[in-house]
Write a protein that binds this DNA or RNA. Structure first.
Lengths: 266, 266
DNA sequence: TTAATAGTGTCTGTAAGACAATATTGC
DNA sequence: GCAATATTGTCTTACAGACACTATTAA
């Protein structure tokens, strides 16, 4: 990023620049946070809005960018931390999904939202409602037929079940987009590993459960295993770390994920 | 997008809402515009900045979002139209690429840029420099070894050759990201068709040249043909529209692209 | 004993990539 | 004529998906 001085003339220009000349929108960083629960189902974190607009509606966590102080990525990381206690520096996946900016999507003012997807292992989650929320909890993501016989996505917690359409703002659309992206990326990224309880110690079928949860579909054990051994073990994306117990008896094999430089960004 | 009233209380809240409470960043919509030239090379449209900052540097076209008046997508479409005379309503591909928002990427003020990729057939282009630009032209995108022996991307027009690093702001990074995304999407999207001179009347190898230009790599004619017939003709993405001339003699077969609902969005 | 989980093997169809052979076209 | 372009075919390897068979473990 080149921000060093380029000319005396430019310095002069900048001194006289008035940033208030143009009408500006607000910018938020929102995060669709996914995890896996004890039942091997895909979960999404929703907060119950404590204030207007959409008071008492469920929404994805997000907050306004503090202009001049932080980048949009940093705002997203901050939001993730505030809501879950998880830090990006801990190696959590936080990836840009889409930016939405229709003038009327927020009734207060023109809000441009930069939306991220985060994949967090359940064990690391310490969920707390931020100051703008009255509640925060995980919802199981399910696909099923609604009252009109249409296949649609809905969200289930211990206390309530809500449909995509009943979320605040356009958040139903955003989560739907996030799920489709997650499904599309599954075969050529390491997204599934990010949802493992322990990346350095897992069984094949643990990973398969994650694939199944994301795709909403049962997979063939034999074929998944073949894929795993070929695409991951043979290509050194993953290492076997022993399949015998202390007594030397064969046990279910354990594997360890090998971190790599990122291959899809930049 | 739900913006209808939800409660009397919320109406009251909105009446008293003061949008000036928070410091806001500026938002721009920038567009990386690709096309193919007569030499079957990938081209990108750059403008020469007419004012500070980065005066006289080459940059991708873009402009500030008019808050409250237009969506970010509309701002990008407007920018595309101003620079090339091409309208999204004419069926031009305009796709979100990435949003960048570091506080210091623009020396004037905190600018969040939502960056799009546009794929435009050469024949439709009517390039004109916008009011903030002193020049606008197409540059061939090439890969080659720089003075340090590093493989890098650079841009060549009839008059000058510039490297990625010498573009304004972080635009080198943005174009680089756009190219990688284009390459990655090539095999599972219809991006290549968007660059055809005439989608309803083209030869197989015309499409192959586009693939080659995007991948910076020669392809095997025989194998490309097989892929084309299997994945595109058999699956009705494309239709043969005759391989005989008026006299009934066999000619190079012509194909017609069949429009479809989008499969990657939503 | 049953049911669920874990692991292996087989068969088919499809597809990618390398490469050879043969037309056709435009200078 | 040559060179570039167009078309077809062969061969090998790889892999996805369907499915059958066998162990092992836990209730």
């Amino acid at each position: 990023m080149m921000t060093e001085s380029r000319s005396q003339e430019e310095q002069e220009f900048l001194k006289n620049y008035d940033p208030a000349r143009y009408e500006r929108p607000s910018v938020t960083a929102d995060v669709v946070i996914f995890t896996m629960d004890e039942d091997n189902e895909l979960n999404v974190l929703l907060i119950k809005r404590g204030g207007h607009p959409f008071k008492d509606y469920w929404a994805i966590p997000g907050g306004f960018l503090e202009a001049g102080k932080e980048s949009v990525d940093e705002a997203a990381a901050r939001e993730l931390y505030e809501e879950t206690g998880v830090k990006v520096s801990d190696g959590i996946e936080l990836r840009q999904l889409i930016t939405v900016g229709a003038p009327d999507r927020d009734p207060r003012t023109h809000v441009v939202s930069v939306v991220y997807t985060a994949l967090v292992p359940r064990g690391l989650l310490a969920i707390k409602a931020g100051d703008d929320a009255s509640d925060a909890r995980l919802f199981k993501v399910r696909r099923g037929y609604d009252e009109h016989g249409e296949l649609s996505t809905y969200f289930v917690s211990s206390e309530c079940s809500i449909t995509m359409k009943h979320l605040a703002f356009d958040h139903g659309f955003l989560i739907s987009t996030a799920i489709k992206r997650l499904q599309g990326r599954l075969s050529y990224t390491d997204d599934a590993f990010a949802l493992l309880q322990d990346k350095s110690r897992f069984e094949i079928y643990e990973l398969m459960k994650i694939h199944e949860a994301i795709l909403f579909q049962k997979l063939d054990r034999s074929n998944f295993r073949k894929m795993f051994l070929r695409s991951l073990v043979d290509r050194q994306r993953v290492k076997e770390i022993g399949k015998y117990d202390a007594a030397g008896k064969p046990k279910t094999a354990l594997y360890c994920y090998l971190e790599r430089k990122d291959y899809d960004e930049n």
